[in-house]
């Protein structure tokens, strides 16, 4: 299911003294089955853009096409549920959305809202809890007695239980320890690879973008300033520094090596790519000798 933005403008609180424009003439497509990363400074409009992806807000101008539904400023607020089922959003610090007595009920809450039967929802809850890496013994516990990281997992399971086609993640690993961060990112990668889920990731961590995404959109002050594959976006390290966006660790290290006279065919973005390039380089150097 593709999501297309066509000349989308968005203004907060139009016609009041607090009016604030957040998005300017956005044109972009999130392709079915892609792993898209959206990066940009705080206040660049990322979160506003996210809310357009499942019609939580409507554009003040232009159209958003989500699958076969078109959202325009005039779209009625009724019957948007089918969209919300297809596009699941994990908001920043999603642990704040837990409310039920037990973990099982909380995870089953989403599917039940979309008309899944009680038993099927309970089965989904157990399955999703396993998927996010928690033991089934947690099912009957209260979500409020869990640790922060576990609450995060339960909240994410609650969104996954809706079985969305598109999964939108707003900084899913913020505040997690390195181990938890890695596990979580690998789980999303797994969902993308095995279940063919389209993933939209908003993050400040360029390493995650380099490691996982296949399409990157760079936002600045509500406008798209660059879009393309990570290779295209990260190629110009000076541009990234100028925009204060951060550079993947591997690329930053590669740049230092370049300064010392080592050449790469293509700027490596991940540790693996860097290692491969260096290995190839050293082999070649060995043959030359």
């Amino acid at each position: 299911m593709d999501i297309c933005f066509d000349q989308v403008d968005f203004t907060y609180q139009p016609n009041t003294p607090f009016e604030q424009r957040a998005l300017f003439d956005l044109n972009m497509t999130i392709k079915d089955g892609s792993y898209t990363a959206i990066v940009g400074h705080t206040g660049s409009g990322k979160s506003t853009l996210l809310q357009h992806l499942n019609a939580l807000v409507k554009p003040t101008k232009g159209t958003v096409t989500i699958g076969d539904r078109t959202i325009t400023p005039e779209t009625n607020n009724k019957n948007l549920k089918p969209i919300r089922k297809k596009v699941g959003i994990v908001f920043q610090f999603p642990e704040a959305q837990l409310f039920e007595e037990t973990v099982a009920k909380d995870i089953a809450f989403g599917p039940k809202n979309f008309g899944v039967s009680e038993e099927a929802a309970a089965k989904l809850a157990a399955e999703m809890l396993g998927l996010v890496g928690l033991d089934p013994s947690y099912l009957e516990r209260s979500p409020f007695e869990l640790s922060g990281g576990q609450m995060r997992r339960v909240a994410i399971a609650g969104v996954l239980a809706m079985e969305p086609e598109v999964l939108v993640l707003d900084e899913p690993t913020a505040g997690l320890d390195p181990q938890g961060r890695k596990e979580m990112m690998e789980m999303f990668q797994h969902l993308h690879d095995e279940r063919g889920m389209t993933i939209v990731l908003v993050t400040h961590l360029m390493d995650d973008v380099a490691n996982y995404a296949d399409h990157v959109i760079v936002l600045e002050k509500g406008k798209i300033v660059k879009a393309g594959t990570p290779q295209v976006v990260f190629n110009d390290i000076n541009w990234l520094k100028e925009k204060q966006l951060g550079v993947p660790t591997a690329s930053a290290f590669a740049e230092k090596l370049i300064a010392k006279g080592i050449n790469f065919e293509q700027l490596p973005l991940t540790a693996d790519e860097l290692a491969d390039a260096l290995l190839k380089g050293s082999k070649k150097a060995g043959e030359d000798q």
Binding site: R84, G88, N113
Partner: peptide, 19 residues
Amino acid sequence: DETEKIMNAQRARGVDFGE
């Protein structure tokens, strides 16, 4: 802000407020 955030999160999980 928090209210708005949680409302959005729950709407994304299929809650209809005010219906």
